[in-house]
Nucleic acid binder design. Structure first.
Lengths: 341, 341
DNA sequence: TAAATAAGGAAAAACGTTTAACTAATGCAT
DNA sequence: ATGCATTAGTTAAACGTTTTTCCTTATTTA
């Protein structure tokens, strides 16, 4: 590897001078600068970041801890974070936790990720994932400055999340504006805080519209297709079935539609369905599913930008909430005038 | 930050001794080791990887260049690579190219990624992405040892890919084994080599079965839903429409099914559809789509393992091909006895 | 013209490790 | 007792930078 010494020798100057033209830390004459630059490019010099960091004690590295890189939501956030930070001279070190179950955390993996990040002297870490049931545990394991993206952390931490309450209101408003009066929900896993926020947001609109959300219209789901399918069947067998269903993610929305299909009901003519997440399956389903889009890229950018500010010591709101957007497709329509029971 | 000096002072030994107990590079007495270990944990010492790398000239860092981290195929590969390499003490530095169009490469981004990787003295890079039209260009830009995952590189490079030819054969065999005789293909973008391999593989089975694949049954697609929808309509309007369609990815398979639906055809009763990729949309569609699963995780593991061998100087086959698996769901059935024209 | 100032460049120390070379102490055979 | 291995530990140099301090030469000013 060619070092600053090689460059200095070829240019006939001292290494200090080379460093100065490299970093612009001191004025050098045009003539010398010329010589040095030529040597630099002739030798194809690449600075050694290890030596640089070691000396300057400024480790321009930031850790990204992905709770599960395979989750639909993680890649767009990483994309944004990576782009933003790379552009600003930071190197990003990736750790993936591969946490499949939300209740059981792989402690060992989190610890070893921390070790990696600490020893590479990462300035801090951006944690990407829902994290809900484990936030305080995770927090206690991470010893460097951390910012949570895509989850709402504790009061004392920094987090960038989307507004679940408002998003659910958007879903509800869309449905009631179409004239629906009997609307059911299939929820996500109830051990996650934001699921309750979604329920509350939804309910607030229902109440404002003078309608009610009876308990038998709120069916617990676990984010997965199969349970959602079963719950939909229950709903459809009710004496007074709903005319619209809000599924808290798109896979479950697909299941709702499949179940309707099975029951001989057409979507959206006989029943309206609205999903959440704007995953690809919602776009490609027949009918295409109306859903809520989470601003993932924006969350990533906000996380990266905020994190840099945090490192600069700038004051920052502890919690930032971004808005979701309703994505209208084909699975919502007005209810039939005289609903077939 | 606590350094090896602090530890040495607290333990009352020299820094060399601390280093030796840290790395097991020399025998130290049980008593001394005890003292040092106590100091280590009392002070919560974390080695400075920059200093370590600088001195030992062994930079245990490997770059991962993701062509597009948002592609469905990238995250599982990163997951595998990251896990395998982290376990073995390597730090992974991530760069994302965010290449949306396959024809136009963002040169600047690739260059700056290389800079990052070079200056962090990454031992090499694993490139994740299809890369097809740009392989040789990319190759010329990357100056460190590189291994291509999820694409077939040039002869002189190392690559881990899946066997497109065999995968397409699997699809074709499944269809002919169900009794289909008129089978059409909607292809991916034709500027990508592997698309042609898929066509050839498919054709080989058709021929072996004594059937033919007329040109009007091979419709060019571009991986996207809309064009696939249009092409399906063309196919369905043919005097002698196919009884089965092979779409080269799952989004297009969804489009095929939507188009059938529009034409009043039921899948799989009236027409069978087989996809490719095993994306989530194939599982959640109604009917669930039979498709080919790419061994993404395995590609990642193979890539990481091979890369480490490469660095060790071990001999390696230049091209490794992994097998896809047929995932049977609901979109394929035997053709009607007397096909309705 | 001499002195003061400015400008450009060099020398050297430091960052936190690893590791080769060295030293001191112990045990063993002669 | 003497010398020689062996063992346990220390010293110090080196890795490739940045940065402070210092030196030399040129330029300005009185």
């Amino acid at each position: 590897m060619v070092t600053i010494h090689d460059v200095a020798k070829l240019a006939g100057v001292s290494i200090a001078t080379v460093s100065h033209v490299l970093n612009g830390t001191k004025k050098v004459s045009a003539k010398t600068e010329e010589k040095v630059k030529k040597a630099l490019s002739d030798l194809n010099y690449v600075p050694n970041i290890a030596a640089k960091s070691l000396k300057s004690q400024d480790y321009k590295s930031i850790g990204v801890i992905a709770e599960d890189i395979k989750a639909f939501s993680t890649p767009p956030i990483i994309d944004a974070v990576c782009g933003y930070l790379n552009e600003r001279g930071y190197t990003i070190t990736l750790c993936n936790l591969r946490t499949y179950s939300h209740s059981q955390y792989d402690t060992q993996l989190l610890i070893s990720s921390m070790k990696i990040l600490e020893s590479s002297r990462a300035r801090g870490a951006i944690y990407i994932g829902a994290a809900s049931p484990n936030v305080s545990f995770i927090r206690s394991m991470i010893k460097i400055p951390v910012l949570f993206a895509y989850s709402s952390a504790l009061e004392s931490d920094y987090s960038i999340d989307y507004d679940n309450y408002k998003a659910a209101r958007l879903a509800a408003m869309h449905l009631v504006s179409q004239g629906h009066k009997r609307i059911a929900i299939i929820t996500g896993a109830l051990d996650q805080d934001f699921v309750h926020q979604r329920i509350m947001g939804f309910q607030s609109v229902i109440m404002e519209a003078g309608l009610t959300l009876p308990p038998e219209y709120i069916l617990p789901g676990n984010w997965n297709y199969n349970l959602a399918y079963q719950q939909t069947c229950k709903l459809l067998d009710l004496a007074e079935p709903p005319t619209a269903i809000f599924a808290m993610n798109d896979s479950m929305a697909c299941a709702v539609i499949a179940a309707c299909h099975k029951h001989g009901l057409k979507v959206p003519e006989d029943l309206s369905v609205i999903g959440f997440d704007n995953r690809s399956c919602s776009a490609y389903n027949t009918p295409a599913i109306t859903t809520l889009g989470i601003p993932l890229y924006e969350i990533g950018i906000a996380a990266a930008a905020s994190f840099l500010k945090l490192l600069e010591g700038e004051a920052l709101p502890h919690k930032q909430l971004l808005d979701c957007a309703l994505i209208e497709r084909e699975s919502v329509a007005s209810p039939r005038q005289y609903p077939n029971l």
